[in-house]
Design a protein around this nucleic acid. Structure first.
Lengths: 221, 221
DNA sequence: CTACGTTTAAAACAGCTGTTTCCAGCGGAG
DNA sequence: CTCCGCTGGAAACAGCTGTTTTAAACGTAG
C-alpha cells in the first residue's frame, strides 16, 4: 500500500496549502517537499496540477454528494409526498456539510477550498464542479422550491445565492473573523457556534418580505 | 500631462485584468502590453506590483471613504442625536457604494476587486485596507450598534459579517450568476435590481430572532 | 526469476515572473 | 539654452514555474 501513502500524503498536504495560499500561489515543489515525496510524483499520479486540484475537491465532494443524496432520500421518505419544511432542508444540508470533513477534522479547510473555488480564476475548476456535482444541487433547489411556494422563482434563485454567499464567505474567512471576535468579545467561536448563529439569519433571509416592484428607470450599463 | 496618461492607463488596465483573473494570475507584461506602455513604467511609477495593487484599491476607496464620511455627517446632523434607523444606514451605504464607481461605470469591477481582496492570499492587501480604511467601518458599525440595541454585541458583529458576505459574494460573482438567471428566468439583472432584492433580505437578516443559547457540548477542534 | 508498478534522485527543459538597467528621445521650466 | 521628469525600446537579470526525462532502487505478483 505504499502508493496510497504517497497519493494520500500529496492530497493531505496540497489541500492545506491550497486553502492557506490559493492555487496559483502554491507550487508543486512546495507541496512535494512538504509532503516528503518526489517532485515527479504529482505528475506521475495525477497527470497535472489541474488534476491535482480537482482530486482535492473530489475527495470532499464525492462523499458529500453521496451522503446528501441519502439524507434527501430519507427526508422524502419520511415526509411521504408532504412538503419538507425549509428549516428541515437547511438543517439537513448543514448536518451533511458538518459530517463529511469531520472524519478528518478538516471542516475549516473544506470551507476555505469552497470559497477559493468561487473566487479564484481557475475556470476549469468551476466547470468541473458544475459538471460533477450540479445534480445534487438541482435536486436540493427543487425541494426548496416546494418549501417556499410564496417566492417567485427568480426571487428564490437569488435568495439561495445570497445565503450561499453568507455561509461560504463566513466559514471560509473564519480564522480572521474568529481572531477579531475573540479579542473583542472574549468568545471562543467554533464552527458549530457559527452554524447555530447562521440558522435564524438564513431562515429570516429566505422568508423576508418581497422587494417592491422595480421602478422604471434608465440605468447606465 | 503625459505622465497622468500613463499612470491612468496602467490603473485602468490593471483593475480590469485583476478583476478578471486575480492578482497572481495577472502579470506586469500583460498589463503593460495591453495598456500600451513600457514594461518598466509600472516599477517606475508605482515601485512594485504590490504598490500597483494597493493603488488600484485606493483609487476606489479614497473617494468612497470621503463620501461615506460626508453622508454619515449629514445623517447625524439630520437626526440630531436621535437614533438613525437601520434601513437608513444600509441605504446610505448602498447609495455611496453605487455612486463612487458610477463615475467610471465600473461598479462591477469594484465589487470583483473587493471580493478578491477578501479571498486571495495577498496578506499585504488586507493589512493595507484594514489600516487605511478601518476607521470609516468602525464609525459605521457604531451607528449600527445604536440602531440595533436589541442585539448582543457579538451577535451584531457576526450578522454584519453575514450580510457583508452576502453582498460581496453576490456582487463579485455577478456575471456568472447573471448568465444563469437570464437563461432560466428571462430577466435582465442590473446591479440596482440586485440591491433592490438585497434590501429586504439584509434587513430581515439583521432583525432575525436570536439563536437559542449554545448547548453545552464538546467539540473536536 | 522475471516483470511490473511504485518511488526516489537528479537533472534538464522551456517558459514566464518581477525587477533593474542602459540608452534615446521628448517637452516644458528654470 | 540647459536641465529634469516622463516615456519608450530593448535587453538582461536571477528566480521560480509545470513538466519531462533518465536513472536506479524497491517490493510484490505471476
Amino acid at each position: 500500500m505504499a502508493q496510497t501513502d504517497t497519493v494520500t500524503r500529496i492530497l493531505d498536504t496540497a489541500e492545506v496549502l491550497f486553502a492557506e495560499r490559493g492555487f496559483a500561489e502554491t507550487s508543486l515543489r512546495t507541496i512535494t517537499s512538504k509532503a516528503r515525496v518526489n517532485l515527479a510524483a504529482v505528475n506521475y499520479h495525477f497527470g497535472s496540477k489541474k488534476s491535482l486540484i480537482q482530486a482535492v475537491f473530489s475527495r470532499y465532494l464525492d462523499p458529500f454528494t453521496e451522503r446528501f443524496h441519502l439524507a434527501l432520500d430519507e427526508l422524502e421518505a419520511r415526509y411521504a409526498g408532504e412538503v419538507i419544511p425549509l428549516e428541515t432542508l437547511l438543517e439537513t444540508m448543514a448536518r451533511t456539510v458538518l459530517e463529511v470533513p469531520a472524519e478528518r477534522n478538516s471542516l475549516k479547510v473544506f470551507m476555505k477550498l469552497l470559497g477559493l473555488a468561487y473566487s479564484q480564476a481557475q475556470g476549469h475548476l468551476r466547470r468541473y464542479i458544475q459538471q460533477e456535482y450540479g445534480g445534487v444541487f438541482t435536486r436540493f433547489t427543487e425541494l426548496v422550491r416546494q418549501a417556499t411556494p410564496q417566492l417567485p422563482d427568480a426571487e428564490r434563485f437569488w435568495r439561495l445565492h445570497f445565503v450561499l454567499g453568507t455561509v461560504i464567505f463566513t466559514l471560509s474567512g473564519l480564522d480572521a473573523l474568529r481572531d477579531i471576535a475573540e479579542k473583542d468579545y472574549q468568545e471562543h467561536v467554533t464552527v458549530r457556534d457559527l452554524i447555530r448563529r447562521l440558522r435564524p439569519v438564513v431562515v429570516a433571509a429566505m422568508n423576508a418580505p418581497l422587494p417592491p416592484a422595480p421602478s422604471v428607470q434608465a440605468e447606465a450599463g
